[in-house]
């Protein structure tokens, strides 16, 4: 490359690079720095590992981490499988599939806050939709958000409802990119419905699955808007998630140094997940 071309390349990269540096890389570095040198609201009290010692001793942190792992372990596979099933269904030759696609996609268009408000009504004891329906069958209903054994699962249910439609769109687009000739050829070769799905559809959808998987995992850790409306992490942290706990520490308990240490822990988790996904799954993905 000539010097001029080098210059052009850097000029073209500059806007994105400047934004990323100012709002992603700098804060990341600042956070890491702060987690090692801060204490409470104070900056630069000298290098120390107190925040990390606190973190290891913090029972709430471990509970929140466990909550978040359960949350991811359930919502990610369930919403992906659901998305695939819905996509296969609305991609088939059925009547009214336009309306069906729209219906499945609607939860995605709604902001998380609105969704949470709608589901707040579903979950409300006494007058809520779910308990009303249960009441018709003579059941006294559940305290969906107030019961520590139920609140996390109630959040998951809503998250799945919201995410599956979004992922369905990706699967639908990928399905429509598969040539019908392939299915016809397979059919002529005597491959049944299940063989066609397993040997053609699934492998050809692998790039989409990888993409969706990464997004789903990231969302499981970074999408906590609904906690503000539904449970605020309660009762007694039973439904608290890592990012919401970071927010609480930074802006409710005003312990930004500890929040920084928590953030570093969150970042590490996300990096590990990304490495696993790209490393392990990429090798089994066929890109056309």
């Amino acid at each position: 490359m000539t010097r001029n071309q080098q210059l052009y390349a850097w000029l073209l990269l500059l806007p994105a690079l400047a934004l990323l540096t100012a709002f992603t890389y700098m804060p990341t570095v600042a956070t890491i720095w702060h987690s090692f040198t801060g204490s409470g609201m104070q900056d630069n009290v000298g290098f120390n590992l107190d925040n990390y010692r606190d973190l290891i001793d913090d029972d709430v942190f471990w509970q929140v981490l466990r909550n978040n792992l359960i949350y991811a372990a359930v919502t990610v596979p369930v919403s992906i499988v659901l998305a695939l099933v819905m996509a296969l269904w609305v991609n088939s030759k059925i009547r009214g599939k336009g309306a069906l696609r729209l219906a499945y996609f609607t939860p995605t268009i709604l902001p998380m806050i609105s969704v949470a408000n709608i589901w707040l009504f579903f979950y409300t004891p006494e007058i809520g939709l779910f308990n009303t329906i249960l009441g018709w069958f003579g059941h006294k209903g559940y305290n969906w958000l107030g019961d520590p054994n139920l609140s996390l699962y109630s959040l998951m249910l809503m998250a799945i409802w919201k995410e599956a439609g979004f992922f369905m769109i990706f699967y639908l687009a990928a399905l429509q990119g598969i040539s019908p000739d392939l299915y016809q050829a397979a059919e002529l070769e005597g491959a049944g419905r299940w063989t066609r799905f397993r040997r053609i559809t699934l492998p050809l959808l692998m790039p989409t699955t990888l993409f969706v998987l990464i997004n789903a995992f990231l969302n499981a850790f970074k999408l906590v808007d609904h906690l503000f409306i539904l449970t605020k992490g309660g009762p007694n942290n039973a439904s608290n998630l890592l990012l919401y706990y970071i927010y609480e520490n930074a802006f409710s308990f005003f312990d930004t140094a500890y929040a920084s240490a928590l953030t570093v822990a969150l970042l590490l988790i996300l990096v590990v997940i990304a490495l696993i996904q790209f490393g392990v799954i990429e090798r089994r993905v066929h890109y056309r």
Binding site: S179, A185, E189, R199, R288
Partner: peptide, 25 residues
Amino acid sequence: SMVFQSYALFPHLSVKENILFGLKA
């Protein structure tokens, strides 16, 4: 058997797996 205009080869399978697809099915 049928030979398609587009060949209808399975892009994610090797030549060998493409040829053997029907026999495996």
